[in-house]
Structures are given as structure tokens and as C-alpha cells.
Design a binder for these strands. Sequence first.
DNA 1: TTGCTCCTCACGTCACGTGAGGTGGC
DNA 2: TTGCTCCTCACGTCACGTGAGGTGGC
Lengths: 166, 166
Amino acid sequence: LSESDPPAGALRDAGLYRIGEVAEAVHVSTRTLRYYDQLGLVEPSSHSQGGSRRYSQGDLQRVFRVRELQAVMGFNLEEIRTILDAEARLAELQQEYRGGVSPARKQAIVVEVASLNATTQDKVAAKILILEEFLADLQAAAKRYRAFAAQNHIPLPESCTPQKVN
Amino acid sequence: LSESDPPAGALRDAGLYRIGEVAEAVHVSTRTLRYYDQLGLVEPSSHSQGGSRRYSQGDLQRVFRVRELQAVMGFNLEEIRTILDAEARLAELQQEYRGGVSPARKQAIVVEVASLNATTQDKVAAKILILEEFLADLQAAAKRYRAFAAQNHIPLPESCTPQKVN
DNA sequence: TTGCTCCTCACGTCACGTGAGGTGGC
DNA sequence: TTGCTCCTCACGTCACGTGAGGTGGC
């Protein structure tokens, strides 16, 4: 695709990753990447002449965001598409790719993106609260377990002590 | 099942809930409850003479815990079964339902439950950290959105302000 | 007896997992 | 040319959703 010949093999498709490399880097299966491609959720920005997928650094980041929103927030792929689409539209506006956009349309996009951000913030904050409650419950239970062990003269190994300090 | 006749209709199966009542209370579908029953994950503690499911208060609590572990922690039903089973085994020990259990077995159960608790604590703590990072990212993005809106003289409605204060 | 709720199949769906069989690229 | 990776079907799975057709309980 480039005019000048690149140095050698490793740099032929400089900055482009094969599907297996992306899979390893982001810890997903190649099946997952092909599925996202099929849905149009994450499409590789180019292909080899033989038809195999070539992912850019940006594509890789997009895959990572999808997994984050899915694993951490529990969103489904359609919700994730909505969020990523909104962010992309605002990024376009900010970089003024589309100078001819009307002020009304501009306003609509900013309001949509900002309120989507606000509701997502609310969901995340709510989730943190629930997790903190859940952690407190676990800690209270652990206290009971330790008391029971002490009462029955049972020594507890290190595996019974949580790693993360607070 | 009871010797004395209960007062009237509403109290016939005192403390027992029909599947639809549980579904409404815990915000799950009846299909989900039947699926949990089929898996042996949450079985109703009794049935009507006609064969319809009757859930106790305890069953309802168990359903609630399943949904919590699933929605908040993203565990699958087999992992949830493991956690609930371990907790139940320890509860048995603590209430000494089984006096004839050997000290070695007793120790094994306590250690297993306590270390399961510890690893779960670690997972919850890790998840909280990720969510806090995610929330910080969202807040940073919101700041950029507000700046863009101000620069373009676009007023932002209340829907663009998150509700939860910290 | 009339509704409403319950029951059991059973097919559909979402987000992939897992081979089957064949081609591409260094 | 030899491996390794890639490709496209296509069936399987998990955790249900959604009717179809029929029985139970106040």
C-alpha cells in the first residue's frame, strides 16, 4: 500500500497487527475478533492482499475498550456500540473533520455525548457502592471464619489472607 | 403440611412464595427461576400438591445472592454454586449439624471457605480499583466535553450532570 | 365456572467455543 | 516445500427469552 519499499519483513506492514497478535495482546480469542468484525463493532482498518485481517494500533485500542466496557460494566455489545459511536462522533466534531455541520446538530451531539457520559458515571458510581458493600460483607464473614478457626484451634494458612490491602 | 389449619387463603402456605411473587420481588423472570431449579442451583423448598413451586424466605435470599454474584461480580452459575456450597458447608459446621465430622475434615472445610473468601475479596478489590480508574477517565472526558461546549457557547442541560456525588 | 397463574416442552438468541477443511505468507 | 497462521462454514454452549399448549388454585 505504501509507495516506498519498507526495509524488511518485520516492518513490511509497519504498525499493523495480525489477528493472532491482537488476540494475545488484548487477551481475547481470534473467534471473538472475527465476531466483532462480523458485527461491524471492530473492523480491522486494512487487509493483506490474501484477505487476512490487519489491525492498527487504534483498532487494538478499540478492542480493549470493548472488553473493558463488557467485563467491567457488564454492557452488551449493542450498548457498547452506542457508547463508542457517540465518542467517535464527538471526536470528529472536536477535530472539525466536518466543518459544514450545523450549530444545532453540533449542540445535539455534544448534549447527547455529555449526558451519555453522565449516566455512565452514575452507573459506575452505583456499581462501586455495591462492590464496597459486598467487600464489607466478605470482610465481616472472614472475621467470623477466623473466630471459628481460633475457637477450634485450627491454624489458617496464608491463602486465607486477602492480598490487596484495602 | 402443617397439623393445624391455617386461618385463610393468604396464609395457607405461610411464608411460602409462588414463583411469580419471587420473580417480582427479586426482579428476575420465572424462566430464570425454573432454569435455576433445573440446574439444582436454587430449588424451591417445597411444592403445592399440584406440583407448582413454593419458595421459602431462605430460597428467596439465595436467589438474590445468585443475582448479586452474577451481576456485580460477573461470575458464572458454576462459580456461584461453588461459593454458595462452601458457605453452606461452613454454616453446617458452625451450627454443628454434623457432630460426627472429623477434626481434619473440619479444618479442610474452614480453610477452603476462608481462602475462597480471600480470593473473592481480592477479585472485588481489584474490580473496585478498575471501576475507580474508569470513573476518573469518565470525569476527565466530561471535563473536556464541558470545555468544548463552553468554547462553542453551547448550554448543557441537567441531564449532562451526574447524579451521584462522588 | 371464569381468570389468573402455574406447568412442561421446545425453538430462538447473544456472545462466543470448538473443531472441520482449506488457503496464505515468511 | 514445510510449518505456522490465517480463512470460512457450521454445530455446540451458557443463560436465559419467548411463545405453544395445557393444568392448577382461589
